[in-house]
Write a protein that binds this DNA or RNA. Structure first.
Lengths: 197, 197
DNA sequence: TGGTAAGTGGAGACCCCCGTCCGCTTGGCG
DNA sequence: CGCCAAGCGGACGGGGGTCTCCACTTACCA
């Protein structure tokens, strides 16, 4: 690949990440091309479809999430590890309007291995936190999906507000995840694949 | 207004409510017209803009929410009244894909009086529940907006799943709204007007 | 029953978006 | 330095959305 082409590709990716975060996935390809200082054709040569651009733009974010979990599994305090993961992921999500959509839109086809591993590791995290007696026994890993979808709604707010709102929401939720007594409705096996268009 | 015209208008409204609930506000005007058995022009004669149709289609829902609050204020148990309102509104929201969008999209211009009154009444409900010692003192009425936005994200799921998921989410949240001890991040003065495009 | 204004529907103007095509430009090797 | 394939950008096709225009139909009153 020629040097200038490589540089263009990188700039497109950077710009795409910025715009997706600012305005969500519905930002037009033409806008990305313009801000990156290239033509539309260039953009489409490197990323044959908008979906592929989205997938590539967010693989980094997914890796970051996985890293959060890896780190949390090493935390000597299982409950703190559990909380930290949820707090960090939700903060990421609140700051990035495209995050949620990319999570649900580009996951099904691509990244399934990554997702499976993440899911498995999160399961371990949950198990550990339950065994320590600090996470309520009827917490379901599917509740993470619940939290992600709920928290994702906040990203339609302006960034500073979304961040603060997310913090408060997460604080509320974590409080009710702590081991207690109340009976909940049964866990919902929500899968991200279920999110419709 | 001629009799047939009146009937057509009513049918359009019914169909619009159905489709908005099923598929969200992004359903095309042409689809509504087709299902209502009228032409597009007829639809636009009665509702000069899509926004006006949305506003009209959801005024009933807003009235229903207000009714929930009115009823709750009469409940001898303030905490039960508070919980019931949140549960009912969230169930409504989970079943209706257009609800959240209409809430944020059509509210700013129209319905401001209704909204103000609803807001005031909810404030009274909150006050009552706090005075009874069952609602945590640092609960902010703005937290209702938080709940609505969060819960609104669930409506992108298929209806049955969304309903169950919403129930569980609300159960978690209500549990943490109950008077306790933990310190939260400060309340976020979220306004529905802040929701961007 | 007949006139007329209100009502109607479908074609199409206009806009925005995704993705492609094609003639021009340019990096970098021999 | 010269060549040429790799790279480029803008125009354009296709589809789908909102809303308008206009010739035709129909309810309803006298």
């Amino acid at each position: 690949m020629r040097a200038d082409a490589k540089e263009n590709r990188a700039r497109v990716l950077t710009v795409a990440r910025e715009l997706f975060a600012e305005r969500g996935l519905e930002v037009p390809m033409a806008a990305i091309a313009r801000r990156a200082g290239v033509g539309v054709a260039t953009l489409y040569r490197r990323f044959p479809t908008k979906e592929s651009l989205v997938a590539e733009a967010f693989t980094e974010q997914f890796a970051v999430c996985q890293a959060f979990i890896d780190e949390a599994l090493k935390d000597p305090d299982p409950w703190r590890g559990f909380c930290t993961v949820i707090e960090k992921v939700c903060r990421l999500q609140a700051c990035d309007r495209g995050f949620t959509a990319a999570f649900t839109a580009s996951f099904p086809d691509l990244h399934t291995e990554v997702r499976d591993r993440t899911w498995q590791d999160f399961g371990a995290l949950v198990r550990r936190a339950k065994d320590s007696g600090q996470l309520r026994a009827d917490f379901s890993p599917h509740d993470l999906t619940l939290v992600l979808i709920a928290n994702g709604g906040l990203s339609s707010l302006p960034v500073e507000i979304a961040t603060a709102a997310s913090q408060r929401l997460v604080a509320y939720l974590l409080e009710s995840f702590r081991a207690g007594t109340d009976v909940l409705p049964p866990p919902v096996p929500v899968s991200l694949d279920l999110v419709l268009g």
